[in-house]
Amino acid sequence: MIVIIDYGLGNLFSVIGAVEKLGFKAKISSKIADMEKADKLILPGVGAFSDGMKNLKNLSLIEPLTKLVVEKKKPILGICLGCQLMAKESFEFGHHKGLGWIDGSVLKLEPNDKDLRVPHVGWDDLLQRKKSILFEGIPSDALFYYTHSFHIKCNNPDDILGECDYGGLFTAAFNHNNIYGTQFHPEKSQLHGLNLLKNFLEKG
């Protein structure tokens, strides 16, 4: 069973649709008991960082989920805001504390080219920097769908799996032990996105 964590932000429908399309049983839940029983977890989300943390806190999920992920090493994939929440801190409209599972900060996208618009919306590259189970069978020129104004900056270069160049490089995919994150939306990136999601669900 795959549990998609519902904390009131983001389009859970498309994530569960993709997981089920790949032949996995999935459940949307905000209950820690369901997450403990799950084989794998997905932390999706679009929206503001501070709202995300506030909602996780109101659901009393921060401590038990951290224990489940960091100590018990339950495999988890964070998507978009979900991957950003895993960082130590965010500078999105102020300074906010994150879940702190990944040594990194969330910063505003500031392309060094005035012609590049923000938010960064659309299909863009994923420069694969490291071998990973996530990338098995994914061609190096595969494109993924991004839609974001902020990005995670990993302090530990070993965690960086893939980058994207949008007037400067940013981390597009990372992995630390059982924790995976993608800034792009695999559930909205057609064939390659579905394959990457499948890799996590099967091998993560």
Binding site: L9, V46, G47, A48, D51, L81, P119, V121, T147, S149
Partner: peptide
Amino acid sequence: ANLFGAQC
């Protein structure tokens, strides 16, 4: 935009 993010 505040609730769902500008990209929405």
